[in-house]
């Protein structure tokens, strides 16, 4: 009985968080799908998104949700810059090169940000109150964030399926060589995709900043979660990432009711490895 109460308390929170995780993972998996690059700078970009909210809200007093717009634009531009400086040259090189190239961006961002912002925790003091749902308290910030996450997913879907650049992105994902033959400007599309991926990372970070305190290293944990989600939903499948995020959120809601919270990562990463082994295309992808 007590367990059920506990479950009802932690599950809604988990689900709402799951949507936001999903947005971060969508960015990672979009980049992977289009160019077969695992962006190891994903974490620091999520963290930059967090700082974006902090500075816009605390220093300039801009509402965190309104602040998403400049953060998204900055994230997009940053991604394009990263693509051209670090990724473009190694796009066809062995995986080690692109992994290390994006990791070097990770080091550069963390190094500069640590020097400028230290690693002590920052906190965005923003609240929308909350309401009771049975035994659970739903925080307004989480509910709004989840709604925004759904909106972002919808917008991404529309972009990929209804617009010309979106269709180009899907064509390049499917088969870059063929897309190039058909006249798709692949370099620009790759840069755009990378930018979209980092934009999603920054947006998710900006939303997470309204829940928890953070520093420049905080993105790392969400980057790892993004890996797990990406593999759950199928690497390269941005929409699957939202579902993967939900699964992770639900797991994080359920597991604490029957074992200690500290076991959550053991199960998450164990699951991650198992899925990589048995269904590398993700839970919903075709087998093999």
């Amino acid at each position: 009985m007590q367990q059920i109460t506990l479950l009802l308390t932690s599950l809604p929170d988990g689900i709402l968080l799951g949507f936001v995780y999903g947005v971060a993972a969508m960015g990672l998996t979009l980049i992977w799908g289009v160019m077969n690059v695992i962006n190891l700078a994903h974490g620091p970009i999520i963290a930059l998104g967090m700082f974006g909210t902090f500075f816009l809200f605390i220093r300039l007093g801009i509402n965190p949700y309104l602040g998403l717009v400049p953060i998204a634009i900055a994230g997009l531009l940053l991604g394009v810059v990263i693509y051209f400086t670090a990724v473009h040259r190694v796009i066809n090189a062995p995986h080690l090169s692109s992994l290390l190239a994006t990791f070097s961006v990770n080091m550069i961002i963390i190094g500069l940000a640590t020097a400028a912002l230290t690693t002590s925790p920052y906190n965005v003091d923003f609240s929308l109150g909350g309401f009771k749902l049975g035994s659970a308290t739903i925080l307004g910030t989480r509910l709004v964030a989840a709604l925004i996450a759904i909106l972002v997913t919808g917008a991404l879907y529309l972009f990929l399926y209804r617009t010309r650049p979106g269709k180009f992105i899907r064509a390049v994902t499917n088969n870059r060589a063929a897309a190039e033959l058909m006249g798709v400007p692949s370099t620009r599309i790759l840069a755009l995709s990378f930018g979209l991926g980092t934009m999603l990372a920054a947006v998710s970070g900006a939303l997470i900043a309204t829940f928890f305190p953070f520093n420049i290293l905080s993105g790392g944990g969400y980057e790892l979660k993004s890996f797990v989600i990406g593999v759950l939903g199928g690497l390269g499948n941005p929409i699957g990432a939202l579902i993967g995020g939900l699964i992770l959120g639900v797991l994080e809601g359920i597991i604490p009711t029957f074992m200690e919270t500290s076991w959550v990562p053991v199960i998450e990463f164990g699951l991650f490895v198992v899925i990589l082994l048995v269904r590398p295309k993700g839970l919903f992808g075709a087998k093999k």
Partner: peptide, 15 residues
């Protein structure tokens, strides 16, 4: 900024 400098060096090597 030692981490950043290491990052730049790494990037140059990889590229």
């Amino acid at each position: 900024i030692q981490l950043s400098v290491s990052g730049v060096v790494l990037l140059l090597i990889v590229l």
